[in-house]
Amino acid sequence: MEVFLQTLVAGILKGGLYGLIGIGMTLIMGVMGIINLAHGQLMMVGMYITFVCFHYLGIDPYFALLVSMPALFLLGVAIQKYTLNPLIEVESILPENQVLMTVGIGMVLTEVARFIFSSDYKSVQTSYSSSSFFIGEISFSLALTIAFFIAVAFTLFMFWFLLRTDLGRSIRATAQDKDAALLMGVNAQRITILTFGIGSALVAAAGTLLMPIYYLFPDIGGPFTRKAFVITILGGLGSTVGAIFGGLTLGLAEAFGATYIGMAFDDMIGLVIFILVLIFLPSGFKRITKV
């Protein structure tokens, strides 16, 4: 029983963070209809910013959110404006040029990070990094629990933002039907730029929250990019609530898989679920949740 409960807790806490990673991706994919294969790499940049803040400026990771998020917002805006949007006008045989471009951007980000910080492993050791509290026999990692609640707060905020603000409504409109949105007077170009910025800022937040319990090196982006698209497909494109469900599902699946099948299958479980969902539930949980 203890094993079961502990696995459940581990899965949910991790799932909260995954959700945050997924929301950024789902917005980008929903609005622009492209996959951002540099998503994990953007998170990596956010993590390095957190590291620099902590290590050189002595800023606690939770306050570093105030630095990493705006910084990544600007980076995302720049990427969309100067590399992805111009591609819409370029004539080429393959429509996937934007996706390939994000691969190139991911490589550039990784290598620039390696250039500046070398391949060394970096970590942020706060006083609470390996502390935990117990409820009964079940252990809760302090940092992960805090991260979970901040992630949930961000998610709720995004939910409110998308539903209740004009900008949020424009983003949703663009995601649903770009042409119709254009007719309604939405500046689609501006919306895609803003969305990429917001998506980047959100994944930066996830990276920053992960920093106290995880570690960092330039190649860390790849696996998280993969997780991000698994979450997004699970949740359904452009669906915030879906991303949370997707994140939790992936977190729980990984945790239970690791406990009851084997830790070696950790990554594979996510990928297999991903393929199954693609085949049997192509629009993800969006089909069930309708949001």
Partner: peptide
């Protein structure tokens, strides 16, 4: 005896076992 993929975020399920 159990293997894992290097770079996992969370080893708790394994350690609980």
């Amino acid at each position: 005896k159990e293997g894992y993929e290097a770079g996992a975020v969370d080893f708790k399920p394994l350690l609980v076992k």
